[in-house]
Amino acid sequence: MTATTTDVPAPRRRVPLPSGDGALGVLGLLTVAAVVEVLPRTGLVNPGYLPPTSEILRALGGVLADADFWRLLGLTLRGWAAGLAVAMALGVALGLLIGSFRVLREVTASTIEFLRPIPSVALIPLVVLVFGSRPPSALVLVVYAATWQVLVQVLYGVADVDPVARDTARSYRFSFLSTGWNVVWPTALPYVVTGFRLAAAVALILEVTAELVIGVPGLGQAIGVAQSSGAVPETYALVIAVGLVGVLVNVLARVLERRVLRWHPSVRREAS
C-alpha cells in the first residue's frame, strides 16, 4: 500500500498476505451464515420467510442427494453452453466481418447502439408464443443477450489493431485472409476472451431467467416450483446451488481468460 516507487520492492510485502486474506474471506462467509442462523431463531425474521442456515444446509444436502437435481443442473448447463457457443460463433464472426470493413462499421454503428440496450426479456412473450416452454425459448434469449457482449468486445479488439501492423501487412501484399489470421486475430483474441467471460455470466442469467419465467426445464424452473409449493428451505437451497454454479462459471471464465492472456503479449484494456 505504501511504497510503489522505485527504491524498495514494496510488492513483496503483499506476498504473505493472501493466506490471511483468504481466512478473512471465509470468516466473512461464516459471519453471514451465522447471522442467517440467528435471525430466524430469535424471531427477528419469520422462519417461514427465511429459515436458519442449518435448515437451508440440510435442505441443500437433500437437494444434492436427489438425482433429479443433477438432471436439472445438466439441462441448465446444456442450455447455457449451447447458447454461449452460438453467441460466441455469431459474435466473433459478425465482429470480425464488421470490424474489418470501415463502411460496414459506420453503417452498422447506429443499429448496434440501438439494438444492444433492448432488453432480451422483451422477447419473452414472442418466444413463448413460438416455442412455448421448450429449450429453444431459452436459447433465443441467451443468444440474443450474450451475442452483444461478444460482438462489442470483438469490435473493440479489431479497432485496436496497430495501424502500423496493418499497413505493413498491406505493403507486403498479405492476402485478406492472411492479414486476418496474422494481424487482426492475435490482437482481437484478448478481447474475444473478455467477451467470452462477460457473455458466460450473462448467458447463465438469461438461461435461469427463461427457466424461471417461461418454465423451460432446469434449475430456474425448480426454484419457481419450490417457491410456489411453499418448500422454503428448498427454495433457498436451490438459490444457493444456482449461485454456486454462477461462481463456478465466473471463476472458470476468469481462469481461462488468464490462461489465454498469459502467453499473449498485447496489453489488454477491458472496454465494456
Binding site: D21, G25, V26, G28, T31, L204, G220, L244, V247
Partner: peptide, 16 residues
C-alpha cells in the same frame, strides 16, 4: 478481504 467472497457469491446469483 472479509467481504469480497460473500459479495462475489451474491453477485453470481442470477438476479431474477
Amino acid at each position: 478481504a472479509f467481504a469480497e467472497p460473500t459479495l462475489e457469491f451474491f453477485r453470481a446469483i442470477p438476479p431474477p
